[in-house]
Amino acid sequence: MVAPALGDALGPRGRRRARTASVLAVLAIGFVVYIALRRFAEAGQLDWDEWEPLTQRDVIRFFGKGLLHTMQAASVSLVLASAFGMVLALGRLSPSLALRTIARSYVEFFRGFPLILLIVFSFFTLPRLGIELTRFWSVCVALILYNAAVLGEIFRAGILSLDRGQTEAASAIGLRRRQAMRLVILPQSFRRMTPTIVSQFVTLLKDTSLAFVVGYEELLRTGQIAGEFYKNGLQSLIVVALIFLVVNFTLSRIARRLEVRQRKRFRTGTIAVAGPEDLVTVGLVDPAKS
């Protein structure tokens, strides 16, 4: 925990100032909230008529289905992308130059451009190339191809973060490279990576909203349909945002708790928490070089 005051505790004058500033800040924040609410109220957007449809049983069920579809696409993609990502990570760490090059080019290529484009491609072009997929699977294929590259980098970082002594000890007791990987390295690094995988799931849930563009009925599309039907687009979309917020906030919390617990238990860091943007923030996954 950082001392909030940058350095040591505030003196008497500093405390006085902080108190005055607190009062002013609360007033300012209150004012902004008031202005925003008034804006909503004046436009009639706080009227119960606009929100009422969203409390109907059928509509709730409809949103629930949207959330379920989002969850489905995200979890199926997470599982398959993890498997694929592990292959990529092992490829990048393999002693064979050819495997390393292939794995690396894959990662570089698929991480380099927007996911939305990959979804469009997988939905419109793959069928033309003779690969017929349902809407669900064409979304999943794009999510898997992309996330395998991201997860592959996370796994690689996880494996590399283990102390070299582990590998050396494994070979000292006569394990082969493959055995050492399977029996010593992977179990340990996998444990370290759990928080990261949970937070990658948050990112995946967010990414699933991109499937909106090809009409997959996930949460965002659901909200838009409801909004068009009840003519309350603003309210429906706000509810969608809130659902995402609650689900992802909870998951992020879980990830953070896992991380703290591990740090205590193993006295080690984990591989950094949260989505790709966060990973790049920590400097772990570097899309520029690496």
Partner: peptide, 25 residues
Amino acid sequence: VETIRNIPPLVLLLVFYFGFPDIGI
């Protein structure tokens, strides 16, 4: 930070672009 980070950017964009005109933005 917590709010913005946990909502998909596309949702933010659509709320702003399709929703906010209702309140005159």
